[in-house]
Design a protein around this nucleic acid. Structure first.
Length: 271
DNA sequence: CAGTGGGCCTGAGTGC
DNA sequence: TGCACTCAGGCCCACT
C-alpha cells in the first residue's frame, strides 16, 4: 500500500484521535521486519504526543521516546474505539485510553520500532539517509538539481532510492515522470535545468493530488478510519500497459527496471 | 562513493 | 480443481 500519500492520509486519519492517549497494553503477533526494540511493558503508561511523518515512516511521539511505524509493502493501520475483531494478519496492537491502533500486514515487511530518541543509533539507521521531503520547503530546486547531477543511473531508480527525495514509490515515480514528459530510463545526471524543474513540479503535483483524493491503492488501501482511497482511477500510465495514452493515444508500454515495472508513454516521454 | 542484485514474506492472478 | 509459476506499493545489505 504505502507510498507517501497513503502514509500521510493514514497519519491524518488518526493523529488527533490518539493524541494525549495513554498506552495501556501492547500486543505483538508474528515477527515483523524488525524487533520492537524494547520490552512491550516499557510502553505501558507512556503518553502519546504528536504523530509525525518522515518519508514513509510514521513517528509517534511518546513521553519517553518514539515509536517508528513503517507499513512496508502491505501494511495498513486501523484506529478504532474498541479492540477490532481478529482478521488474518494483525501483528501489532497498541491499546490506549482513546482507542486501539492496529497494524495489519500480510507480508510483514512493515515494522514498529521503539527508540529512546531520534538520535539513537536505530533511529539514525532508519531515518538518517532519507532524502528531502517533497511536500516541504526542504524540496529545493537547486538541491534537487545538484543531487541529480551526481547520479549516473536512470532517473526512475533515483526517485525510488529515496536518498535524494523521499516518498516517491513505484506508482508515483511512473506518474511523475509521465507528467514531466521524461523517460524512466533517462540518466539522472543528464537532465537539464528546465526538465529538473518540471520533474520537481510534477512530483509535488502528483503527491498533493493523491493526498487530496485520500491516498491511492492497487487493491485495498484504506486509511486508519476505514475510508478507501481511489487514486488508481486517476493513474495516467501506471498499470495501463497496452492501453492508449490518455494524452496522445499511442500505446502505453511497460518495462523492467531493477525488478520493478516502469510504465511510460513512448511519445509523451522523451529520453 | 555509486550502482546492482538478493532477500525478506504472503496472497492474488494466470496458464496448463 | 490443483499445481507451478509470476508478480505486487519497500528497503536493507552485501557485493562489485
Amino acid at each position: 500500500m504505502p507510498e507517501l500519500p497513503e502514509v500521510e492520509v493514514t497519519r491524518r486519519s488518526f493523529a488527533s484521535a490518539i493524541e494525549q492517549a495513554t498506552i495501556q497494553r501492547v500486543w505483538q503477533g508474528l515477527p515483523l521486519r524488525w524487533p520492537l526494540g524494547c520490552a512491550p511493558e516499557y510502553l505501558v503508561g507512556q503518553r502519546v504526543g504528536s504523530v509525525q511523518r518522515r518519508g514513509k515512516y510514521l513517528l509517534l511521539e511518546l513521553s519517553h521516546g518514539w515509536l517508528l511505524v513503517h507499513l512496508g509493502m502491505s501494511g495498513s493501520l486501523l484506529f478504532s474505539a474498541h479492540l477490532p475483531a481478529p482478521t488474518a494478519h494483525e501483528h501489532f496492537d497498541l491499546v490506549t485510553t482513546r482507542g486501539v491502533l492496529r497494524l495489519n500486514d500480510p507480508r510483514r515487511f512493515g515494522a514498529v520500532v521503539f527508540v529512546p530518541d531520534l538520535a539513537a543509533p536505530t533511529a539514525v539507521k532508519l531515518l538518517g539517509k532519507l532524502g528531502m521531503e517533497p511536500l516541504s520547503d526542504q524540496f529545493d530546486l537547486d538541491a534537487f538539481a545538484v543531487g541529480l547531477k551526481k547520479r549516473r543511473t536512470a532517473i526512475k531508480q533515483v526517485l525510488l532510492a529515496g536518498n535524494l527525495v523521499v516518498g516517491v514509490g513505484n506508482i508515483y515515480a511512473c506518474e511523475s515522470l509521465f507528467l514531466a514528459g521524461i523517460r524512466p530510463t533517462t540518466v539522472a545526471a543528464r537532465l537539464r535545468r528546465p526538465r529538473v524543474q518540471r520533474l520537481r513540479a510534477a512530483i509535488i503535483e502528483v503527491l498533493t493530488a493523491a493526498i487530496e483524493r485520500g491516498g491511492s491503492t492497487l487493491r485495498d488501501f484504506s486509511s486508519a478510519d476505514g475510508s478507501a482511497g481511489h487514486f488508481q482511477l486517476e493513474a495516467k500510465v501506471y498499470g495501463r500497459a497496452g492501453l492508449p495514452c490518455l494524452c496522445c493515444g499511442s500505446t502505453v508500454r511497460v518495462m523492467r527496471q531493477g525488478q520493478r515495472s516502469s510504465y511510460f508513454c513512448p511519445v509523451c516521454q522523451k529520453a
